[in-house]
Design a protein around this nucleic acid. Structure first.
Length: 274
DNA sequence: CTACCTCCCTGGATGC
DNA sequence: TGCATCCAGGGAGGTA
């Protein structure tokens, strides 16, 4: 399940392979739930445009596009959802099942969007009066101490649920919420607004550290996540609580507990997290 | 506005 | 072995 580190890894990989390349032809499957803009509109907008840059915002991959000059006039926004993959391949590479988009590039490469569960979203956005894509929440990697604390002030919901709320922070998903709460020693069910300033700062630093560690290792390959080349990440080997229910805590050997918070499976150490 | 609920999807795991 | 059922989970959209 792609979260910030996985999306960052994919965006970097795609950027390195297609930056400056021109989209010769775009093909889309006919599953409407995959698309915010219609397949026809997307294909028409993409064809003939050059990819100036690919980067990550929250959990979204943003491709900056230009018609002719080096001026961005459109964006292709990709959200990987649960099982989405954005791959750069050769045109003759075998077509994976559930391939929903193929962008043939002038260099001969091809960008492919594959998404079995179809929770992913693709959007084409022309930048005229419309602004460029902006995440709804704050960027976890760069948010400072005071604004981070402000996000949770007065909130009664569980800190785990607050971390997952994309309108507060953009990019944190189930894995890194659990892992950062473990590193910060905070129980996932604590009311967000009841955490002390010191605890919130510990959480912010833990979150940023765990995200950077994960980016360094190419993300976590649970489910079927792979990077732009189809290579798996390695951060799943570093998970201390996520999907380790019943296994001993790596710090104190207490069995890791699994509960449900905000409708999501949640893992924590009852001894280390208060 | 906040907090919570349901739904969308498929494939891997589980149950009989 | 085979078939049916369960369930994960990000985010949109709806409701109290």
């Amino acid at each position: 399940m792609p979260e910030l580190p996985e999306v960052e890894t994919v965006a970097r990989g795609v950027d390195a392979r297609v930056r400056g390349d021109k989209i010769a032809e775009a093909w889309f499957s006919s599953y409407p739930q995959t698309f915010k803009t219609s397949p026809q509109t997307q294909a028409k907008g993409l064809e003939g445009r050059t990819i100036l840059e690919v980067h990550r915002t929250g959990k979204h991959i943003v491709c900056e596009l230009a018609s002719d000059a080096a001026t961005i006039d459109a964006q292709w926004i990709v959200h990987l959802g649960m099982t989405g993959r954005l791959l750069v391949t050769t045109p003759d590479a075998p077509l994976a099942p559930h391939t929903h988009a193929r962008l043939r590039l002038e260099s001969g490469r091809e960008i492919r969007f594959v998404d079995p569960r179809r929770f992913g979203r693709l959007e084409f956005r022309k930048l005229k009066k419309a602004n460029g894509f902006e995440a709804k929440g704050a960027e976890p990697l760069s948010i400072d101490s005071a604004p981070f604390a402000q996000l949770f002030r007065g909130r009664k919901l569980a800190i785990k649920a607050a971390l997952l709320n994309q309108t507060l922070l953009s990019g944190v998903g189930n894995i890194y919420a659990d892992e950062s709460l473990f590193r910060a020693g905070i129980r996932p069910r604590r009311a967000a607004g009841r955490l002390s300033r010191a605890e919130l700062e510990k959480l912010r630093l833990a979150l940023q550290a765990v995200l950077l560690d994960a980016i360094r290792l190419g993300g976590s390959s649970v489910s079927d996540y792979v990077d732009a080349e189809g290579v798996r990440g390695f951060f799943q080997l570093e998970h201390r609580v996520y999907q380790r229910a019943g296994e001993p805590c790596l710090v104190c050997s207490t069995p890791i507990r699994r509960i449900v918070v905000g409708g999501r499976s949640t893992h924590y150490c009852p001894q280390c997290q208060k």
